[in-house]
């Protein structure tokens, strides 16, 4: 007989034992491992999704910040450009003012120089003229320059016109104090006597005179009484000479000033 019932029972039992063994050693562990892996993958996917979302959020934030940064940079650039423009304008203005100030200073310096030169020329000319005059007068005559001045003064005194003479005469008459006669140098007694005599003669009175030396006068003699004044001085000629030289200098300074111009700024 093909079927042995003991073997059937034993095999059924064997099979059931095998089912238990396989369940114990194969199916449960393998399924647990698969479940754990799936769980892990699911967790990782969730994490990845969260990270992706976070990354997208950060990316958006970064893009937003980038745009904001670009905008701020553009604003700052515009602002800086405006500031540079304003600063440039201000510096131009400063330079222009500095140039104007320098020009003014230069002009003042030029004028000062001209004035100083004028003074120097005047003093020099004065000294030269004195020296020449003295030498010439010394060479031509025995009379000194001072004597000659006294003579010129007396001659002028005598040649006074009517109005001036009357005015001076009135002043001499009414004057409580003696007339003041100032001269650059100490007049010798003879010269004083000549002048006293000429005064007495001219005004037909005993004119009291007080002689005084004054270095302010430039080689001349001056008679002052009660506000009236009569004088002769080489200074008059010097004033005339100075005027002439001043005009000449002004005339020369004018073209140089006209030629100077403010340099172009860029």
């Amino acid at each position: 007989m093909l079927i042995d019932w003991f073997t059937v029972g034993a095999q059924a039992l064997n099979f059931l034992v095998l089912v238990w063994l396989m369940k114990r050693f194969l199916y449960h562990p393998i399924l647990r491992a698969i479940d754990a892996r799936e769980q892990r993958i699911a967790t990782e996917l969730v994490d990845a999704a969260a990270k992706k979302a976070e990354a997208r959020k950060e990316s958006d934030e970064f893009a937003h910040k980038n745009a904001e940064f670009d905008r701020q940079r553009a604003d700052l650039f515009l602002k800086a450009a405006d500031e540079v423009k304003a600063e440039r304008q201000r510096l131009f203005e400063e330079v222009r003012q500095a140039a104007d100030a320098a020009e003014t200073k230069r002009r003042e310096t030029l004028q000062n120089d001209a004035r100083s030169l004028n003074d120097a020329i005047r003093v020099c000319a004065q000294q030269e003229v004195f020296a020449i005059a003295r030498k010439v007068l010394g060479d031509l005559a025995t009379t000194s320059l001072e004597e000659r001045m006294g003579e010129v003064f007396t001659r002028r005194l005598r040649e006074l016109d009517g109005a001036a003479k009357a005015s001076l005469a009135a002043a001499i008459t009414n004057a409580p104090a003696p007339a003041l006669l100032r001269s650059t140098f100490e007049l010798p007694a003879a010269q004083r006597a000549v002048i006293q005599h000429a005064l007495n003669e001219t005004f037909s009175a005993e004119v009291r005179v007080r002689f005084e030396t004054s270095p302010d006068l430039v080689s001349g003699i001056e008679l002052t009484i009660s506000g009236q004044k009569m004088a002769w001085s080489i200074a008059e000629y010097f004033v005339s000479l100075e005027k002439g030289i001043g005009e000449l200098l002004n005339h020369e300074a004018q073209p140089s000033h006209a030629n100077s111009s403010v340099p172009a700024l860029s």
Partner: peptide
């Protein structure tokens, strides 16, 4: 016997 046992199971 074995196949019968399996079939019976």
């Amino acid at each position: 016997s074995t196949t019968a046992a399996l079939a019976l199971c």
